[in-house]
């Protein structure tokens, strides 16, 4: 593609990894380098920064540069597609090394100020309802739980049952639940359906009708909003069914669809994120 780098070519003097460096690595770069290191992981890029910097630049010998060799011995100029970075990008990368490879602010930082006792109960309930471990020590689970918890707090009360809110469910939740206790709560609280739906589909469903094509549809309402792209991709339905989420995903391998999946997550774009 001609003119693929239609992006500001000016060098950034004080770049950080999350704000300036990571966005310069494409999915193609990720896949191509995936056997060696993860370009979307701060620690790994920091570790390999000097080698990456050499690989981004044409060889000092013009004859070698002409046939595509980089300054890193035996390595072609990276990336091969769509071609060498603009000079401003390479300078930005050098500036990042020179300033000590600052990390910057992680975009997926968990939200603060959530009642930890209620969150713990919400996680426990979510585990019981989804049938999945939902290990909150894993990097993507806790932030999602916070988002979903807050969204479910805004769910309207069931008009047929004035005691059908998330906080009431949590209030009724035993810290040492039995299957019978969970079954009883499921029968009492329709919000249990919404908890399952929000984890599995990354959206809530209580304004949705499924009457058929062209008649009913999900209706976004103010407290609901629309799911963010990362939530769509992280919806558990993809993970559980070994589906791919019809989304950009760095972990995938060319032509993987030919083969049978060998383990959970390998082909879902969610590998290593939940377990």
């Amino acid at each position: 593609m001609i003119n693929s780098y239609a992006t500001n070519n000016n060098a950034i003097s004080n770049p950080t990894y999350y704000q300036n460096i990571r966005p310069m690595f494409s999915q193609y770069d990720m896949v191509m380098m995936g056997n060696y290191f993860n370009l979307h992981n701060y620690e790994e890029v920091k570790k390999w920064a000097n080698s990456i910097y050499l690989a981004l630049q044409p060889n000092d010998d013009p004859n070698m540069a002409m046939v595509g060799w980089s300054k890193l011995p035996q390595v072609h100029i990276m990336p091969e597609v769509p071609g060498k970075w603009p000079d401003g990008w390479i300078q930005t990368f050098k500036n990042w090394i020179d300033t000590g490879c600052p990390e910057g602010q992680r975009p997926d930082k968990p939200e603060d100020a959530v009642d930890s006792r209620k969150m713990a109960a919400f996680i426990q309930i979510s585990q019981g309802l989804t049938g999945l471990p939902l290990d909150i020590t894993q990097p993507n689970v806790y932030p999602l739980a916070v988002v979903y918890f807050n969204r479910l707090l805004e769910r309207p009360n069931n008009q047929n049952n004035g005691n059908d809110t998330l906080l009431q469910l949590i209030n009724d939740w035993n810290t040492n639940p039995t299957p019978a206790h969970l079954a009883q709560l499921v029968k009492s609280y329709s919000i249990c359906s919404d908890i399952i739906l929000i984890w599995y589909n990354s959206t809530t469903n209580w304004n949705r009708t499924l009457d058929g094509f062209g008649k009913g549809a999900p209706v976004p309402v103010p407290w609901y909003g629309t799911p963010a792209s990362n939530q769509y991709k992280e919806a558990l339905v993809w993970k559980v069914t070994l589906c791919h989420p019809m989304a950009w995903a760095p972990e995938i391998t060319p032509f993987y669809w030919e083969m049978k999946p060998t383990d959970d997550g390998q082909y879902t774009g969610l590998y290593n994120k939940f377990y």
Partner: peptide, 22 residues
């Protein structure tokens, strides 16, 4: 597969009690 989840838990309508879970 999104609607399959709704089908299985019986939540095609608003405020439905989950029929399948865990």
């Amino acid at each position: 597969p999104g609607y399959n989840v709704g089908d299985l838990i019986g939540a095609a309508r608003s405020f439905s009690i989950a029929q399948t879970y865990g």
